[in-house]
């Protein structure tokens, strides 16, 4: 099953640890809905049922639940006290560091966890536009928003690359684009049935169109975040470089790092291609580093006058 990953051997620091991590089940991560309760309150409620959680050193409101717990059936979940979300997927919104009153666009929002995370970060102020091109998948977005009590969410259904420019400007935009999802294989082994290389032709244009659109919709001085859950440089550094090459302004590279969360820098070369040396400020998340899925994040600050 892991043959499709062999091509990453040159860029993985510890291949055996990487393989071992992929064989293990993915820990279940959740975060407290701080609009309603504190993390300590949720943890205390779970402790009453002898459910012990493990803290995440880097995220104050998140925790790891026991593997055997049926997380979606617990009363705390039904009451909207916590939301389940893969640990690596918490990273982009955490790094965006948004403020109350901000206007944020999540371009590919379904199933809605990152949008919900943004809404809670904004403390039910400002606006989070949760967009997805799949009307069916938006049901999950609304379901989560309702359970968590989010008043600052606006749900839209549009091809992310076609969102009208007049819908902006936004203080920040998250382009968590459709990808080959290799990094989710611990949860969804079928993600490795085919090589990411087979999806690139299909997804590459979409990924570039979405990131380019993000740069058109963000306000001067605003933040653009590009994220995928794949290891493939063709869907990560390649896309970032190609889109940056088309811009008529130079966005500032924002260092994508989190204290206490292990990550690797973005690649500056892959196969025969050399990227902008600033690509090292991107974040690559490998499963064996934090016992998570795989992820990639690039962050940019658009100039005040672009």
């Amino acid at each position: 099953m892991f043959e499709v990953l062999e091509r990453y051997k040159p860029i993985v620091d510890d291949w055996n640890a990487f393989m071992d991590a992929l064989e293990r089940p993915l820990p279940t991560c959740a975060w407290a809905n701080t609009l309603r309760v504190s993390r300590d309150d949720v943890v205390a409620s779970l402790a009453q049922a002898d459910i012990e959680v493990r803290e995440l050193g880097w995220h104050p409101d998140a925790f790891i639940l026991p593997e055997t717990l049926s997380v979606g059936n617990r009363i705390e979940f039904i009451a909207g006290l916590y939301q389940v979300q893969e640990e690596a997927a918490l990273v982009p919104v955490h790094m965006m560091n948004m403020s109350e009153g901000d206007r944020v666009l999540d371009m590919c929002a379904a199933p809605g966890n990152k949008s919900a995370q943004l809404c809670v970060t904004l403390s039910n102020t400002g606006t989070v536009v949760a967009n997805d091109r799949s009307y069916q998948r938006l049901r999950a977005v609304r379901n989560t928003a309702d359970r968590l009590g989010l008043t600052n969410i606006v749900v839209t259904c549009e091809d992310a690359g076609n969102i009208p420019d007049r819908s902006g400007p936004f203080d920040a935009i998250l382009a968590d684009v459709p990808c080959s999802c290799e990094g989710t294989s611990r949860k969804n082994p079928s993600a490795l049935k085919v090589s990411a290389l087979d999806s690139i032709a299909k997804l590459g244009g979409t990924q570039r169109a979405i990131l380019a659109k993000a740069f058109r919709l963000v306000r001067p001085g605003g933040l653009v975040v590009y994220a995928t859950c794949t290891y493939a440089p063709e869907e990560n550094e390649d896309v970032v470089q190609d889109v940056l090459d088309t811009l008529d302004f130079e966005p500032e590279w924002v260092d994508a790092r989190i204290d206490g969360f292990v990550s690797s820098p973005g690649l500056t070369t892959w196969n025969d291609r050399e990227y902008d040396p600033h690509m090292s400020s991107c974040m690559r998340v490998w499963p064996h580093h934090n016992d998570t899925g795989g992820f990639f994040v690039a962050m940019f600050r658009v100039p005040e006058a672009s």
């Binding site: 309702d146 009590g149 969410i153 606006v154 749900v155 839209t156 259904c157 009208p164």
Partner: peptide, 12 residues
């Protein structure tokens, strides 16, 4: 909110 695309829903 945005005017376009027309929102499917706003708020709670």
């Amino acid at each position: 909110p945005v005017d376009e695309p027309s929102p499917e829903s706003c708020g709670l």
